[in-house]
Design a protein around this nucleic acid. Structure first.
Length: 772
DNA sequence: GACATATCTAAAGCC
DNA sequence: TAGATATGTC
C-alpha cells in the first residue's frame, strides 16, 4: 500500500500497529489521513480482519468521513465498527444490556426530554425555582454521570447540608423516572455500558476478544467514563491508539478531561508517542501568531507546528467603533479580498464567498453580520444550533412515533395527547396518570381500555380514543408496516395533518412542508437500511453479526436520536459561512474572520475566575486562528451592545498576547493590565490608531425590515381589530393603556412605550392597538 | 382550556 | 435587546 504521500512521522504512526500509541496531532497536521491510512495498512498489509477493528469518534460527521475515507482506500469497512461512543454503547446495550433491567428497546432522551423530566421533578419536590433551574440540575447530574458516580454513591458521599441533600434526591428521582419510562439519556448510554462491563465480565471479555485494535479520535475530548470504557475494552492487550491535540481541548465545560491525553503515557508507560507537527493548512504567519497565543498556556504538551509554506500576509486587525462597524468592515474586506484575488494579487486563485468564514464566540454575534451582509448583498449561511428536529411539528410526530416503539413513554404521550387539540388539559392528564399508575400501566396503555376512556370529558372522548387506538394499532402492526406507512397513519389518523390543513396559514403550510420533508428523511433511512441488509446477506460470516436487520420503526427512532442533526454544512453553496468557533473545529477556510476580540466577550467574562477557564478560552482562540489557511482577520469593537446595554470594551487579552510584529492595521492597545480588576470598564482614548483603508463607520440606527410572520393571528386580528403592520415610531392607541409610540418589533411582539403606562410588550395583531 | 400580557435572563453544544 | 417562560384573564 502506498504511504508515499505521508510524511515520515505519519508513516511511523501508520506502521506502529501493536501496543499503546499516542498520536499528538496538531491542527492541520493530516490527522484523519494518518488514521485512515493506518487502518487501511492494518487490513491490507498486516492482514488484520476488519472485524477486529474499532474506531471511535465523537461526531457522526467524523465517523462518516472516516468510514468513507477508509472505504476509498480498501474498498470496504464491512465488519469494522467505525462510530461514535454513543452509537457503540447503544449497540452493546441493545445486544447485551438486558441484565441491567433495561428492556432492550429503551428510548434515548434528548436534551428537551431531560428538561421536561427535570421540570416535573422540580415541581414534585416543590423546589425553589429560582435556585434550582432545570439546566443547572441537569448539568450537576451529567457531571456526576461523567465521573461515573451513581445516585447511590452520590448519596453515600454527599454532605449533610440541605443543598447536597436536594441534589441527591433530584438525581435519584431523575434516574427513577427514566427507568420507569424505559429511557436513557446520552450519559446513561455510556455509564450503563461501563456498568455492564463491570457486572458482566464475560460480556466485556467478549468485546475485548473481538476488538483487538482500537482507535480513538479526538482523545482530548474524552470524559472520564469514556476513558474508562476505552481502557476496559483495551484490556490487557492494550492495543490502543489514541489521537488528539491537547491544545484543541475546548469542551472541558461539558466534561472533557484534558488529563486523559496528558496522562496517557502515565496510564500506559510502554506507550509510543508520535507528534505530528508539520502543518499543511496555514501560512507561516498564521501559525506563528496562533503559537504566540497558545504558548501562554501552562499545562500543555510541548510542541510547535511548522510549515514549509510561505509566511503569507500579516494578520490584519481592525478596531471598530461598534459592532455594526465591525460587521461592515468584514463585508467590505470580503469584497476587497475578492477583487484582489481576482486580479491575482497575492492569491493563487480567485476567492469565492464560500472561502470566507466568520467565526465568533457566541451565536448572538451572528445577528449583526447577518443584517449587514443582507444589506450589502453578500450571500451567507449561518450554521447554528437551531436544529431542524427542534421544530415543533417534527418533535410532535417524533413523540407519536416514539410511543409506537415504547408505549411506556408517558413524557411523549403528555406532549401529544392534546396536539392537535382534543379538549384535554393539565387536570385531565393528571387524572389519567393516576388511573394508569393505579393499574400499573402507562397512560397510553390505560387509554387502550374503554373503562379509562369513559372517565374522559365527553368532548374529548372520541378524539382521544381514536388517537390511542391509532398508536396501539401501529405498534401491533409495526412488523408488517413500513416506517413511512406508520408515519402516514400517525399523521392522518390522529388528525394531526387535518388540524394543520384546517389552519390555512402561512405558518401551518410551512409546518406541513416540514412534515413532508421529514418523510423524505424516512425514505432515505428505508432505502439505506434495505441496502445495508442486502450487503449483509451477501457477506454472511457465520458470526452473530446482526448489524443490519432491515428498516424498522425502532431502528429509525434510534437512527434519529443518535443523528440529531442533518449535517447542514453544504460546501457547494457559494456563501460566506458563519458559525461559532466551537463548531468550526476540524474545518478550514482560506480566509477567517475572528470578530469580538474583547475581554468579557472573548475571553468570556466567566473565564476570568479561573486559570483553567482562561486556558480553555485560549485554546478556543487557538482553534479559531488555526482554521485559517491564507488570511486571518481579527477585529474588536470599541463599544458593544450586549443585553441591551452599550458599554466600552477593552481589547482581548489574547490580542495583547499575540506577537505584534505579525499584526497590521490598528495598533493593539497594550499595557500591563492597567485597570486592575476585570470589573473596571475601560474608557481610555488612544485605542485605535486610525482607520484602515480610510473608513470607519459610525453607528446608524438600523430599522429592522418588517418581515414578521403574523399569519397565525390574521383571522383573529381581523376579528378583534388588531393590526399587524406597525413600524417603529408609529403613534398608537390602546383602550386600556392610552396612547403611545411603537418602539420595536420583536418577533411576534410589538413593544410600545405608552405615554402613561410605560413600556408594554404585546402580541402583534391581537393586541387591541389602533394606529393614530 | 386558550389566549393575552408580564417577567425573566442571558456561552459554547457533541451524542 | 429579544426570545422563552410564567402568570393572569376571559
Amino acid at each position: 500500500m502506498d504511504l508515499g504521500r505521508l510524511n515520515e512521522k505519519q508513516q511511523e504512526a501508520v506502521r506502529y500497529t501493536e501496543g499503546p500509541l499516542l498520536i499528538l496531532a496538531g491542527a492541520g497536521s493530516g490527522k484523519t489521513s494518518t488514521m485512515t491510512h493506518r487502518i487501511a495498512y492494518m487490513v491490507e498489509e498486516k492482514g488484520i480482519d476488519p472485524y477486529e477493528i474499532l474506531a471511535v469518534t465523537f461526531t457522526n460527521k467524523a465517523a462518516g468521513e472516516m468510514r468513507e475515507r477508509i472505504e476509498s482506500l480498501v474498498g470496504s469497512t464491512r465488519g469494522m465498527w467505525v462510530m461514535t461512543f454513543h452509537a457503540m454503547c447503544v449497540r452493546i446495550l441493545r445486544r447485551d444490556g438486558e441484565q441491567l433491567g433495561f428492556n432492550n428497546n429503551f428510548v434515548i432522551y434528548d436534551g428537551t426530554d431531560q428538561k421536561t423530566v427535570m421540570k416535573n421533578i422540580i415541581k414534585e419536590l416543590n423546589l425553589d425555582t429560582k435556585e434550582y433551574k432545570p439546566a443547572y440540575l441537569l448539568s450537576v447530574i451529567s457531571r456526576k454521570k461523567e465521573l461515573g458516580v451513581t445516585p447511590k454513591q452520590f448519596r453515600e458521599n454527599a454532605s449533610n447540608d440541605p443543598r447536597a441533600r436536594v441534589l441527591v434526591q433530584v438525581y435519584e428521582l431523575y434516574q427513577k423516572q427514566l427507568m420507569e419510562n424505559n429511557a436513557m439519556d446520552f450519559d446513561d448510554l455510556l455509564t450503563n455500558t461501563l456498568l455492564l462491563f463491570h457486572q458482566q465480565p464475560e460480556v466485556l471479555a467478549n468485546y475485548q476478544d473481538r476488538f483487538r485494535y482500537i482507535m480513538v479520535d479526538e482523545y482530548q475530548d474524552t470524559n472520564h467514563v469514556q476513558y474508562e470504557l476505552v481502557k476496559a475494552l483495551a484490556g490487557d492487550r492494550k492495543n490502543i491508539c489514541v489521537v488528539g491535540d491537547d491544545d484543541q481541548c475546548i469542551y472541558q465545560w461539558r466534561g472533557a478531561d484534558i488529563r486523559n491525553i496528558l496522562d496517557f503515557e502515565h496510564d500506559y508507560p510502554e506507550a509510543k508517542v508520535i507528534k505530528l507537527e508539520q502543518n499543511y493548512r496555514s501560512v507561516g504567519n498564521i501559525l506563528a501568531a496562533a503559537h504566540s497565543v497558545i504558548e501562554n498556556n501552562r499545562g500543555r504538551k510541548a510542541k510547535r507546528l511548522w510549515t514549509s509554506r510561505e509566511k503569507g500576509a500579516k494578520i490584519r486587525y481592525y478596531r471598530a467603533n461598534n459592532e455594526k462597524d465591525e460587521a461592515l468592515f468584514a463585508a467590505r474586506e470580503i469584497e476587497r479580498l475578492r477583487d484582489k484575488s481576482r486580479r491575482g494579487d497575492g492569491f493563487r486563485e480567485p476567492l469565492s464567498y464560500k472561502d470566507f468564514a466568520i467565526l465568533y464566540r457566541t451565536n448572538a454575534q451572528s445577528r449583526q453580520f447577518e443584517e449587514t451582509f443582507t444589506r450589502e448583498h453578500i450571500p451567507y449561511r449561518v450554521l447554528s444550533g437551531l436544529r431542524y428536529y427542534d421544530r415543533k411539528e417534527i418533535k410532535d410526530l417524533m413523540a407519536y412515533m416514539r410511543l409506537v416503539v415504547n408505549p411506556r413513554d408517558d413524557l411523549s404521550l403528555r406532549r401529544i395527547i392534546n396536539e392537535p387539540k382534543r379538549g384535554i388539559g393539565e387536570k385531565t392528564i393528571d387524572k389519567l396518570a393516576v388511573f394508569a399508575s393505579v393499574r400499573g400501566q402507562s397512560i397510553l396503555e390505560a387509554l387502550g381500555d374503554e373503562e379509562v376512556l369513559q372517565t374522559l370529558p365527553a368532548k374529548a372522548y372520541e378524539a382521544v380514543k381514536a388517537m390511542a387506538a391509532t398508536i396501539l394499532l401501529c405498534r401491533q402492526e409495526r412488523e408488517n408496516l413500513r416506517v413511512s406507512d406508520i408515519y402516514d397513519h400517525l399523521l392522518v389518523d390522529t388528525g394531526y395533518l387535518a388540524a394543520l390543513e384546517a389552519e390555512k396559514t402561512v405558518e401551518s403550510e410551512g409546518r406541513i412542508e416540514n412534515l413532508m420533508e421529514f418523510k423524505s428523511v424516512i425514505y432515505d433511512y428505508e432505502s439505506q437500511e434495505a441496502l445495508a441488509t442486502m450487503e449483509a446477506d451477501l457477506s454472511f460470516r457465520g458470526e452473530e453479526e446482526t448489524e443490519a436487520e432491515g428498516p424498522s420503526i425502532d431502528g429509525f427512532m434510534e437512527h434519529l436520536s443518535l443523528m440529531s442533526e442533518i449535517d447542514n454544512h453544504d460546501p457547494s453553496q457559494d456563501a460566506v459561512v458563519m458559525m461559532t468557533m466551537h463548531s468550526a473545529k476540524g474545518l478550514e477556510f482560506p480566509v477567517v474572520f475572528l470578530p469580538g476580540l474583547e475581554d468579557g466577550l472573548f475571553p468570556g467574562s466567566r473565564s476570568f475566575d479561573s486559570e483553567s477557564g482562561m486556558e480553555e478560552e485560549r485554546r478556543l482562540c487557538y482553534v479559531g486562528m488555526t482554521r485559517a489557511k491564507e488570511r486571518l482577520i481579527l477585529s474588536s469593537a470599541t463599544t458593544r451592545t450586549l443585553y441591551g446595554r452599550s458599554d466600552y470594551t477593552r481589547e482581548s487579552q489574547f490580542l495583547r498576547e499575540m506577537d505584534e510584529s505579525l499584526l497590521e492595521g490598528d495598533r493593539v492597545f497594550k499595557r500591563r493590565d492597567p485597570y486592575g480588576s476585570r470589573t473596571t470598564t475601560y474608557r481610555g482614548p488612544g485605542v485605535s490608531t486610525g482607520p484602515i483603508d480610510g473608513f470607519r463607520e459610525e453607528a446608524k440606527p438600523y430599522l429592522k425590515p418588517f418581515d414578521v410572520n403574523v399569519a397565525k393571528t390574521e383571522t383573529r386580528a381581523a376579528a378583534s381589530g388588531g393590526e399587524t403592520d406597525f413600524t417603529p415610531g408609529d403613534r398608537v392607541r390602546h383602550p386600556k393603556f392610552g396612547t403611545g409610540t411603537v418602539r420595536s418589533i420583536q418577533g411576534k411582539m410589538v413593544v410600545v412605550a405608552f405615554d402613561e403606562a410605560g413600556e408594554k410588550k404585546m402580541a402583534l395583531g391581537i393586541a387591541p392597538l389602533k394606529k393614530l
